[in-house]
């Protein structure tokens, strides 16, 4: 099966003229297939978020290739990259995910409208995505009126609306309590079951337990991978 996301020996270092460049990611290779949920774990500064940003085309690698849906992101213009993010990639941040001046449904329908889909059709799709996230009654509420968990669910609805093949979640449960966190993981898991490739960055082992595969990063390098079935024991043995 063709992977939705493929990182080929990707490195990212920041060189701002100082004598020693900061290496955020070093020769990382990773592929994520459709219907797979991969969790990326590691301590702070290990390169988790950098990996996700490179996968989402928010940043460019210093070396290596990033392929999404078979497209090398380095070959894409800024406009094509934006179109890819709009159509194929969903992104969920830890917090401040939503545009505060738009209602929940308007936040979700925004990528579709920017893509040229008529407002009525976009609204219908957005409402369906919100219903799937369990927010049928909150479509017209503004983000400030929603709880943290509800905001994340709206963000996930926005990330999956349309035909997104890749869902990137950067610590989506970081600011949530356990129950709300579990609900978010259920949603991501449902997207995985619907055929999307999901990459979840987290530092909480209990959420990584939902993943088909767990990738461990340290100092910008992948130091280990654990697959479903033995994930729990592997995670338990990690510090």
């Amino acid at each position: 099966m063709t992977p939705v996301l493929e990182l080929r020996v990707v490195s990212r270092h920041y060189d701002d003229g100082a004598a020693a460049a900061v290496v955020a990611l070093s020769s990382v290779s990773l592929s994520v297939s459709p219907g797979e949920l991969v969790a990326v774990m590691g301590s702070s500064g290990s390169g988790k978020s950098t990996l996700l940003q490179l996968a989402g085309g928010l940043d460019r690698p210093s070396d290596g290739q990033v392929l999404v849906d078979g497209h090398d992101l380095a070959d894409l213009s800024a406009r094509a990259l934006a179109a890819l993010r709009r159509q194929r990639v969903g992104y969920v941040f830890q917090r401040l995910n939503l545009l505060a001046s738009l209602t929940a449904v308007e936040n979700v329908m925004l990528p579709l409208e920017l893509d040229g889909i008529a407002s009525r059709a976009a609204r219908a799709s957005a409402e369906a995505a919100l219903a799937e996230a369990g927010l049928q009654g909150s479509t017209k509420r503004y983000p400030d009126d929603l709880s943290g968990g509800e905001q994340q669910r709206v963000a996930i609805a926005r990330a999956v609306v349309g035909e997104r093949a890749l869902l990137l979640a950067d610590e989506p449960t970081g600011a949530l309590d356990t129950v709300a966190g579990e609900a978010i993981l259920e949603l991501l898991s449902a997207r995985r079951d619907a055929g999307a490739a999901v990459v979840l960055v987290t530092h909480e082992p209990r959420f990584a337990g939902w993943a088909d595969r767990v990738v461990f990063l340290r100092d910008g390098k992948i130091i280990d991978e654990a697959h479903a079935g033995r994930g729990s024991s592997t995670l338990a043995s990690r510090p």
Binding site: A82, P111, R158
Partner: peptide
């Protein structure tokens, strides 16, 4: 800027938008 960042990253807006 944060709004612009969100528009680009999460909603896929480009420079024209």
């Amino acid at each position: 800027l944060r709004t612009i960042g969100l528009l680009s990253a999460a909603a896929g807006a480009d420079e024209r938008h």
